[in-house]
Write a protein that binds this DNA or RNA. Structure first.
Length: 283
DNA sequence: CGCCAGGTCGTCT
DNA sequence: AGACGACATGGC
């Protein structure tokens, strides 16, 4: 087993996991605020200890998780830029300075955020767990069983009824259709060559994927930081803290991308986490 | 009962 | 282009 020890000033496990960018993480129990984090078929253990952040994983997965947790990026510089903006953003950045934007698998991210639409985070986590347990491979980490996120092929093998049974509701049709039609080209180089706008056009052409889900896939799956997902929480921030007048969420997103440029995605996470933390005391 | 949750689709102006 | 209701489910 590998143990990766890092400076924890800009890497807080709890904040990184609870800001809504991923849904497959679990309290590990072994120590306070220690978590198992699943990505595709892999798992690691993540926690803060003193001034450090620690990742424990299989040796073969070391490079995968170094990239996953975006270890090569200077988050101190991003937090500083947010603090310079002043107002609510500097407050939010101080609260969320330990947040990192993960480099998640593109396919898992897209499927997951289709599940997320018009849904709440605890329920999204439950659905994705049932999806994995019902269609994914069983794996083991530190003697504990878990399930891999299903491949598109594994999802396509399931009947529509399965997706309804695990609680997807009307989203079952979206998941089923994407699984059936999935051509696996997400990782092709031509896909990476698209600019963010063209990428979003391609994503929104998928049935069940609108501007918000496309922005989440773009930000969390492709690390396009010039993406700014606008959901109900961000809309509240926009109206209450930026005195916004717009109602069209796509235009609100454009407003923030124009304003913050390549920092937009990071700042969005600070703002989302801040706003949601205010109302969800348990975070 | 109602309203809300990391929205999108189809339909009608 | 923009407005609006329908859509499954579960928590409060």
């Amino acid at each position: 087993m590998e143990k990766i020890v890092l400076d924890g000033e800009f890497f807080n496990a709890k904040d990184t996991l609870n800001c809504g960018q991923l849904f497959r993480f679990f309290s590990a129990g072994v120590k306070k605020d220690a978590y198992f984090v699943n990505s595709l078929d892999k798992r690691c253990l993540l926690y803060n200890e003193g001034k450090n952040a620690v990742i424990e994983c299989e040796e073969v997965d070391r490079a995968y998780f170094e990239n996953y947790f975006d270890l090569s990026r200077d988050y101190g510089a991003i937090v500083s830029a947010a603090e310079k903006e002043g107002g609510i953003l500097s407050v939010a950045a101080r609260l969320g300075k330990g947040i990192r934007i993960l480099n998640q698998d593109r396919t898992e991210t897209l499927f997951s955020f289709i599940v997320s639409q018009n849904n709440n985070i605890p329920r999204i986590k439950g659905i994705i767990e049932r999806l994995s347990a019902g269609a994914g491979q069983k794996r083991e980490f530190y003697g504990e069983e878990y399930y891999a996120f299903p491949t598109a092929e594994e999802l396509a093998a399931k009947p529509l009824e399965f997706f309804k049974e695990i609680g997807l509701g009307y989203r079952a049709d979206y998941i089923k259709r994407l699984a059936d039609n999935f051509d696996g080209t997400f990782d092709a180089s031509e896909f990476s060559a698209l600019n963010t706008n063209d990428l979003k056009k391609k994503l929104t052409s998928i049935y069940g994927v609108g501007p918000k889900v496309a922005d989440c896939a773009s930000l969390f799956g492709f690390h396009r930081s010039d993406s700014f997902p606008v959901d109900t929480w961000i809309e509240k921030v926009y109206k209450e803290n930026f005195n916004g007048e717009l109602h069209d969420r796509a235009k609100i997103a454009d407003f923030f991308v124009d304003k913050f440029g390549e920092n937009a995605g990071y700042f969005q996470q600070y703002l989302f986490y801040y706003k949601r933390s205010l109302e969800k005391q348990e975070l």
